[in-house]
Design a protein around this nucleic acid. Structure first.
Lengths: 148, 148
DNA sequence: ATTTCAGTTCTTAATTTGCAGAACTAAAAA
DNA sequence: TTTTTAGTTCTGCAAATTAAGAACTGAAAT
């Protein structure tokens, strides 16, 4: 039944697309597949066959951007790490903010461009408008999901 | 008036957030700010003070993912590269597809999980539903923008 | 007070990435 | 036909990333 290890690897590979390191991706993947869904540092380290430092750094990265979190149980000093699925929308929000900020940069660029290249300026304006529209829709979707 | 160089650098730095290399980011930034909005390989290379190989790779990367394109003029064998702003929505679509695909991976994970961790499974289902909803909204926004 | 435990931090090594510079290529010009 | 042009590809190196292993730390248990 060690197709679990293989599944963790496979989904880990897919998750690497989002710019995470191999071990960070496997930590994510393991916590997505594992049962129970919370695991200690050492369980993760052992399952992934990785070094403590690699796992420590991967976990702290995920904690930083809110992908995972941990809980504790009284009388047990270990931390139990789990995918912070409730934080998902906030992470989407943060990505949306990045797009929004860059859109402001483009808006500023447009404002400073001369009138010699109307064609380009118009297309740039279209892109900016589209992105604003899209960002609005994304915010809207997040709000709607929240009020459930 | 070489605050243009500085602006290209500054916006280049911002654009690096989206995972592009320094030179690729500066190529984008230059083509966003430059007038006219299309530039030859050598104009880019010279403006950025970079090597031909670096510029060649950056340009080909951008061509690959549709960020830039080029046009030619008869009697001039140079290619004139420009930001392919009309392709913006397609690139957004492609990113949305990545999210959609990963959502299917998570859907598959959910299907295979046991019933021992209902809490986690429910949250996972929420995330999946939210992502589907969001992807739908994104597609919708793209369609709406298209029919203008 | 000492030991154990759960991680963290500090080297260090191995890849990987990003880029320069030079050699190369294919098409067009002369 | 040779030469020029507009890039591309190759070689190699420097810097950054990733991860291992071992030393370290601070809180908790004994």
């Amino acid at each position: 039944m060690d197709n679990l290890k293989q599944r963790v690897e496979d989904i880990g590979v897919v998750y690497e697309q989002f710019g995470k390191t191999p071990i960070a991706s496997r930590v994510f993947s393991f916590l997505l597949l594992a049962e129970p869904s919370y695991k200690t540092f050492d369980e993760i380290r052992e399952f992934l066959n990785a070094s403590k430092s690699a796992v420590s750094n991967a976990i702290n990265g995920h904690l930083q951007d809110g992908t995972i979190n941990y809980k504790t149980f009284s009388g047990d000093r270990k931390r139990y790490f789990y995918l912070d699925l409730e934080n998902w929308k906030k992470r989407v929000e943060e990505y949306a903010k990045k797009l929004y900020d860059f859109n402001n940069v483009m808006e500023d660029v447009l404002k400073h461009r001369s009138n010699n290249d109307i064609e380009f300026n118009n297309k740039l304006k279209d892109v900016i408008d589209f992105q604003n529209f899209l960002n609005q829709k994304i915010d809207e979707a997040i709000r709607k999901w929240e009020e459930n």
